[in-house]
């Protein structure tokens, strides 16, 4: 299954990287072609998420869960893959729901930043997978230089877990507080 997982992983990786390029391009340009490419994003990201899910599932079949949860490198790979998948689903939802409106105002700056975080997660996940199957890259050394020894499990101390959970709850609270309420205006919305 390891070989199939590696084979399958090319699809979401390629699609998410393509999506990143389109997001960056669209954030910089309102040209007709950039707008056309951006309209493809929901479909592209949906396809990437599906392929990502299939790749993720195939990865879970390589070793017994017992082995995955006992290996620091495998734990890290699983954690990074879970976050990557969830994160790109978030971007899919934003692109889907936001449509053309996410290319205006502050969103126009936020979108490439979000995409770059996503592609970083993707790169880390892929690099860890490479280490797992015996094809290490310099990314491992780069992460080490930045403060994370990839042969040790990435876990948060208790206080940081509390802070993270508090942050998550705060976000949910803000979402409720800032939830959109029906408004009425005269004709016309934001212009591209």
């Amino acid at each position: 299954m390891s070989a199939y997982h590696a084979l399958l992983s090319h699809f979401p990786v390629a699609l998410w990287i393509t999506a990143t390029l389109i997001i960056v391009w669209r954030s910089l340009s309102a040209a007709t072609l950039a707008q056309a490419a951006a309209r493809l994003l929901p479909l592209l990201l949906l396809w990437a998420a599906l392929m990502g899910l299939i790749t993720f599932s195939a990865g879970l079949l390589i070793w017994p869960l017992e082995a995955v949860s006992a290996s620091p490198l495998a734990r890290n790979h699983l954690l990074a893959a879970s976050w990557t998948l969830a994160y790109w689903v978030l971007l899919l939802a934003l692109c889907w729901r936001g449509g053309n409106l996410i290319w205006h105002g502050s969103w126009r700056l936020l979108m490439p930043a979000l995409a770059l975080i996503g592609v970083t997660l993707l790169g880390v996940t892929g690099a860890l997978g490479g280490h797992l199957i015996g094809n290490p890259t310099m990314i491992g050394s780069l992460l080490r230089a930045l403060g994370w020894e990839i042969y040790t499990t990435f876990y948060l101390p208790g206080w940081m877990l509390v802070l993270t959970l508090a942050g998550a709850l705060l976000f949910l609270g803000l979402a409720w507080l800032w939830r959109p309420r029906p408004t009425t205006t005269t004709r016309g919305g934001p212009q591209p």
């Binding site: 939802a93 729901r97 409106l101 979402a175 959109p180 919305g189």
Partner: peptide
């Protein structure tokens, strides 16, 4: 999501 701009009615 809560901050997504909505097309005004």
């Amino acid at each position: 999501f809560s901050l997504l701009p909505r097309p005004a009615r």
